[in-house]
Design a protein around this nucleic acid. Sequence first.
DNA 1: ACTCCACAGGAAAATTGGGGTA
DNA 2: TACCCCAATTTTCCTGTGGAGT
Length: 434
Amino acid sequence: MSTYNPFENMEQKVEAAFEGLNVLSSSYVPEYFPHREQQIESMVKALGVILKNNRASNLILYGKSGTGKTSVTKYITNMLREATSNKVRVIYINCQVYDSPYSIMVTIVNSITDDVNSQIPSLGWPLDKIYQEFLNRMNGSNKYVLVVLDEIDKLVEKNGGDSLYVILKAVDEELIGSRISIIGITNYTSFAEKLDARVRSRLNQESIIFQPYDATQLRDILAERLKSLNGKGVIEDSAINLCAAIAAREHGDARKAIDLMRISIEMAIREHSDKVTEREVYRARNKFELDVLHESVRSLPLHTKIVLLSVVLTQRVANRPIYTGEVYENYRRICEELSMQALTSRRVSDLLADLDDIGLIVSLNKSLGRAGRSRFLRVPDHLDLIEEYVLEDEQLSTFKGVKLSKQQRLRGITEDDERDLRDLLNARIDRHQG
DNA sequence: ACTCCACAGGAAAATTGGGGTA
DNA sequence: TACCCCAATTTTCCTGTGGAGT
């Protein structure tokens, strides 16, 4: 491993490393994208026609998270904007945040409106009035609008693609003199299949695929980013390789590789160590995972937190796979204790499904014959931490240290059933992690 | 073969609450 | 102020179902 150290003393080293660290931040858009030449070329070719006053095709970009879709898009659209001296207006919309036709249309209209006073309120207007306003404002300008719909698949999940149809209809090229294109970004390769034919033909005019990076490519990316870091001499090659290897195992996620590197460096800086080694990377990985856990618990809506608390407390006294019925019962008690209106079991069932999606619990549907059919579930990991994080919510702090009274085994769940369920859930956890 | 448990989860109605106009 | 429009959330109502017990 080649390690050289251009610095005289620690002070300088620490400072220098801090200085350039923003090249590892998530919002940093690099100038050069190793192993994405092909995708960039395709996009430039597709969008370049705008410079000749033609309409660009709508694009869909496919690729897992951290494969550069968003960064490349930002990079190219920035260039386009500069090349046309701001005649091209780029509207970046994250469909997870703006997931209704209404909110998206409002965002679009407001981004082509420079006057702060004539912005449309985020609520209250009839949709057709917003369309009308959009057409008026478009026709009154000579701008070319590029709408980037990030995580476009969220729109299909939500209301079966209706949103997309409504939006496509509203931004119909014919109506506004062919001065609008849409770039859709999605994680799912099967996204187009789920689309309605009428939407698909209009949206999916051209698609570009971002393959996952392999470990070697990830290493190149890290090396490229670190090139501008003043403290590069303090990072061991093996540490870089390890970041690349860990991220490669996780569907070739460059963002993860970069995050790991950044956390490793921050860790080394904070502890005044003079080098970033594999040890820092391993520790960064752990910290990273816990940070993600903390944030995902912290950002849950209140009742989802209460449901999660119910799951944690129930599991603790039961020490076996638990099921919807008892979770709901305990959830109800907790709400009562807090003098809060409890949600219905139907709703709680959905919240449990959400928790499963996020990965905070694992669950499966199983019938126990006459004993009924339920969703059985378990918190796979970090039970204590999850409880701690849930209880950070001020409204729930009274539950610190609370334990549920021992519950008798409900229904006809036998020891065999129990073992069976435990195995099934474990298998699911393994599949998830492996 | 039939029953029946304890739910899952789809569909649609109802409620909530911001924001509009008259 | 009264009343309308909108999206989002939650409730209500409902049908469906895997498999042990009979």
